[in-house]
Design a protein around this nucleic acid. Structure first.
Lengths: 160, 160
DNA sequence: TCGGTATTGTTTCATATGAAACTATATGTC
DNA sequence: GACATATAGTTTCATATGAAACAATACCGA
């Protein structure tokens, strides 16, 4: 049931109807979901990480001064979800969480040595996989794609 | 906390680290999620539909010969999720589900008059919203975007 | 025709999620 | 300082989800 087969039922566009394949939100979601599924399998199988945990680690990899709140802002994830992800990472010894000296409500997050070691394996794998994914795009197409996505994000903030 | 503010903590890229903002899976997911959140709010507030239900209706709007299996294939949704979405739509009188004459395992799905009426409101709204979203893209940029996404989907099938 | 296998769709069950309640700390006003 | 309000993060609870078990039907080969 791979692409190309079994398309007898796929219709043409008609008036007053919605061709989902031309509808950007649908297309974007389907693509993002499929990519996410693939990566999730990689994180889960090899490193026993879910998406939320991976995102926290990835932000920690290049942001040494992080709090749960910042993760929420950057990743658009719910604070409960972030709280649980951080808890799991702390339990596994990949991350430390210490109350901030300035504000006791805030907890500073840092990678442990183990966390950094894990990332030193995972990040290149993720980058290799991404490189394979975008291998069919030219450098210009890739740049234009990120560019168009940036425009859409900014437009979202405007009309949201 | 709109864009531009509060970026003190957002770091620059360093060696051996992952800049999520340049990492396509992350960017794609974030964009798709935000778009999805907006549309979901629209479906939910005005029509009391969740995403799965909306997708079933949208496919029904231009595909008069549909089954749960086909919806699964087209939308990449789990069959349990589709089953529940269809059940909810049938309960609301928006969709009929009748066993196929040829194969009793299969159930043919069709829009009711009410379902078609609902879509005749919802689809233009969704299209208007999309038009506003992509208003900052030129026609060429929009075409290139869909094109690049198509390439990525085909590449995914190859490397998945 | 019968027995084995495949397929469609539903249901069960365990888990992940977000909304809201809650705790603890900070800030601002009088 | 005391009270009201705001914020960071956790926990509780209700719901959505997917994996797997299941039921019903179809197909296929002897």
């Amino acid at each position: 049931m791979s692409s190309g087969e079994e398309n007898q039922g796929i219709p043409q566009q008609g008036p007053g109807q919605l061709d989902l394949n031309q509808f950007l939100p649908y297309r974007l979601n389907r693509l993002a979901d499929r990519i996410s599924d693939e990566l999730e399998r990689m994180y889960a199988q090899r490193y026993d990480l879910n998406v939320a945990q991976w995102r926290v680690l990835a932000w920690l990899s290049h942001c040494d001064d992080l709090t749960a709140k910042k993760v929420c802002t950057y990743t658009n994830m719910d604070k409960a979800r972030v709280s649980r992800a951080v808890q799991a990472l702390v339990d596994r010894g990949l991350v430390t969480r210490t109350p901030s000296a300035r504000d006791q409500r805030v907890h500073d997050l840092h990678l442990t040595r183990d966390g950094a070691a894990l990332l030193s394996h995972l990040i290149p794998e993720a980058q290799d996989w991404e490189a394979e994914l975008v291998a069919t795009l030219s450098a210009g197409e890739y740049r234009d794609l990120l560019n168009a996505m940036g425009k859409l994000e900014r437009q979202l903030e405007r009309i949201g």
